[in-house]
């Protein structure tokens, strides 16, 4: 099925979820178009993690649906993968075997899985690390390896939960640039969770704010600044206007 550039790739429709008496999410709707980077910004406790678990199929919502390319994947893991701040590279597997893991889980034979994983190493700036163990890698490299694993696990959509928040400011900034490049190159659509407003404005095409008890999407702010964005975009008045807009909504 061919997908036109602006077609909806991932859609959440009316998702609600309670844990016992505690209502976590209520009627959450949003869409992700192919190639978009959308930030989900929310105060802690607004149900970001629950929403992620629902999207990745680990939790089934009480009501609502998750659609990928129009196919209902609610409660079915294996379609959308996520990446956390913790890279979760397994210390006992070499980098290439870590990255090949989603392919192995799908039943791809070991040799083929390794070859396919290794073929992306150059693109992800990981060449030469194939046979190393993760503890030999720097923080930035580990996150890149984790992202490659996420990419191979997904059908074109990656959920990233504060992936760069453990990195130092300079590495983080470099990772942002790198991520935007690679994402375009491999045609990855991204839902990005963060509580860092600067990061959200810098990276996003749109910013969705998840807030309240139970959590709802209270606003959807498009960031229209053209790409590639200038290095001093975060010093411009437009940048501040976006931040002000977010802050006003967050206080509510």
């Amino acid at each position: 099925m061919p997908i036109s550039p602006n077609s909806v790739l991932l859609e959440a429709r009316g998702i609600s979820k309670s844990f016992g008496e505690n209502k976590v999410l209520e009627n959450v709707d949003f869409t992700l178009k192919k190639g978009e980077l959308v930030c989900l910004l929310g105060v802690s406790g607004a149900g970001k993690t629950t929403l992620f678990n629902i999207l990745s199929g680990l939790i089934t919502p009480d009501s609502g649906q998750v659609l990928l390319n129009g196919v209902n994947i609610t409660g079915r893991p294996g379609k959308i993968s996520y990446m956390l701040q913790k890279d979760l590279l397994l210390p006992y597997r070499t980098v290439v075997d870590n990255v090949a893991l989603p392919l192995l889980v799908r039943g791809v034979p070991k040799k083929q899985a390794r070859e396919k994983a290794a073929s992306y190493f150059q693109k992800f700036g990981l060449q030469g690390t194939e046979k190393k163990y993760p503890n030999k890698l720097s923080g930035g490299m580990r996150q890149r390896a984790a992202l490659l694993r996420t990419y191979l696990a997904s059908d074109g959509v990656a959920l990233l939960d504060e992936p760069f928040s453990a990195l130092d400011t300079i590495t983080k900034s470099a990772m942002h640039e790198w991520y935007l490049d690679i994402m375009r190159e491999i045609e990855l659509t991204t839902l990005f969770i963060t509580h860092d407003m600067d990061e959200a404005v810098k990276l996003s095409d749109r910013i969705c704010i998840l807030s309240g008890h139970p959590g709802k999407i209270i606003c959807d702010i498009p960031v229209t600044e053209p790409r590639p964005r200038a290095h001093d975009f975060n010093l411009s008045s437009a940048f501040l206007d976006y931040k002000r807009q977010i802050a006003e909504n967050l206080i509510l």
């Binding site: 199929g57 680990l58 893991p77 294996g78 979760l88 397994l90 597997r93 893991l101 192995l104 799908r106």
Partner: peptide, 29 residues
């Protein structure tokens, strides 16, 4: 075994046997 790693494998569609093979067993070595 790291529960987050187990969740990650589940999100990739792994069942019990694969979680045992790729996470639990090597973690217990």
């Amino acid at each position: 075994a790291d529960p987050d790693a187990i969740h990650l494998l589940r999100s990739m569609g792994a069942g019990r046997v694969k979680i045992f093979r790729y996470i639990k067993f090597p973690s217990s070595l």
